[in-house]
Design a protein around this nucleic acid. Structure first.
Lengths: 257, 257
DNA sequence: ACAAAAGTGTTGCCGATACACCCATGA
DNA sequence: TCATGGGTGTATCGGCAACACTTTTGT
């Protein structure tokens, strides 16, 4: 079988195994160069960008489907993944757009297929360490890369809205989510942690007060190493004490101001 | 047609109109006698209690389905309704339990029916003024009544967990949700508002500080009326300034302590 | 030497808490 | 008149925001 036939065969085979009318979509967040970024896929032979998403198998928990889909479509594993909203409007996708994209890959599926029928999507967001990740596109996509959250193209279906809701939800949950642990590398400096929270909050924070408060939470371990290379005083490296971090987030959460 | 045949016919007819594998379930919260309560239905000829839930029509937004199902099954309209979580484990319902309940009503449906297949449920919670409501059971139920949140029976399927997640979510969102506006009557006293928040938070609050803070938010209008009837000084009645209330919840939310 | 950035300390204000006192009402 | 609960005022305490100075490093 050539590649096209293989892909078509694969899709047809999937149809019998999945739950109709249901999908999952994942908003993968990363943090790089002081910007919040999202991982997007570009459909083969098109300029159409979309969130990594997929179908749920008949006997598979929806949460598990989100993990599997993410691995199949981007190669990412073991992520911090949270369900945040379910998108259930009947006009959230337009089958003609979808058919056009498949046509670009010479995949032909009857217009009556359940694939083109109304679909409800359960939205998840993931927090990943940007550097740890080498995303790889799957067989439906040409490219898989990070996009600045402030500068997204027009996305497939209602994916722009899904991203927007994910960002809003993440902001709301900021005090209770382990964003530092999951978006930063194992070792990081205090200014790096501060940039992260500043970016997510959308407002600058006082350097000294921020440091005092974070240290007061007592979930950071200062290492003996420092980050060298800059034209300035080398900052200390820190690491999370995961237990204490979780405990603080659980009880009351963080505060900013 | 007798009642049984009518009900069976009705269900059969529904099957062609609905999206398979998908349902909505509603956790209706009320506040009465200083307790948070949930509205439950008892299936006909059984002692099985369940949340009001139902199916989604082919062309119907899921949000709309939640509103409709709630009206059909309890008679309630125009509620404050929020989606909070989607429950997608394959073993969250057991078709044998469901068949047994339908059998009690002499409704017989083939075991192969999609009704008994795996179902993903989108959870919503509603906030309602207890006194405004006269819930009425539908044709599948014998009874519809309020239950104290702390003293629920074993519910249908995973509905106990759904309620638990709803309560947890409501607590988390407490500072940003218009719980006062929707759970209390149009006019209410300061102590009543305080009892509400105390119950939801699970901790007592200082009477004087609470009053000061609420008035400082400037979203309460004190009326010239007082609540008489108690063996004590008659408290003032208040009403929400809806715009200001919404504005405060939007920006920063409420604080307690 | 200088600029840029990081580490640490101090002050003062605001706001929340912990109070006390008085008032209204029904029994 | 007494018990109960509601309305209002005040003093204190602590935490957080605002701010300054020193230290380190590369150029």
């Amino acid at each position: 079988m050539d590649q096209v036939t293989s892909a078509q065969h694969w899709m047809a085979q999937q149809m019998g195994l999945i739950i109709p009318h249901l999908s999952v979509d994942c908003v993968v967040f990363g943090f790089h160069e002081n910007q919040l970024r999202v991982l997007l896929l570009r459909f083969k032979n098109t300029e159409v960008w979309a969130l990594p998403g997929g179908r749920v198998y008949r006997e598979e928990p929806v949460n598990t489907a989100a993990v599997r889909v993410l691995e199949q479509r981007t190669g990412l594993r073991g992520l911090y993944l949270q369900q945040f909203h379910t998108f259930g409007d009947p006009d959230r996708l337009h089958s003609s757009d979808f058919q056009a994209i498949l046509a670009q890959q010479n995949i032909r599926i009857e217009a009556s297929s359940l694939l083109f029928d109304r679909t409800i999507s359960v939205g998840y967001y993931a927090l990943v360490e940007f550097a740890q990740v080498s995303p790889a596109p799957d067989q439906l996509s040409d490219e898989c890369r990070w996009w600045d959250i402030r500068d997204l193209p027009k996305l497939f279906f209602d994916h722009n809205e899904i991203v927007a809701v994910a960002v809003r939800t993440l902001r709301q949950r900021l005090s209770y989510e382990p964003v530092g642990l999951n978006l930063l590398p194992e070792k990081f400096t205090m200014p790096e942690l501060q940039r992260l929270y500043e970016t997510l909050l959308g407002q600058p924070l006082d350097r000294r007060n921020f440091q005092k408060r974070m240290l007061a939470y007592d979930f950071l371990q200062r290492l003996d190493e420092r980050r060298t290379g800059g034209a300035f005083k080398a900052p200390y490296l820190y690491r999370f004490d995961r237990e204490r971090y979780a405990a603080v987030l659980q009880g009351g959460g963080l505060a900013f101001g």
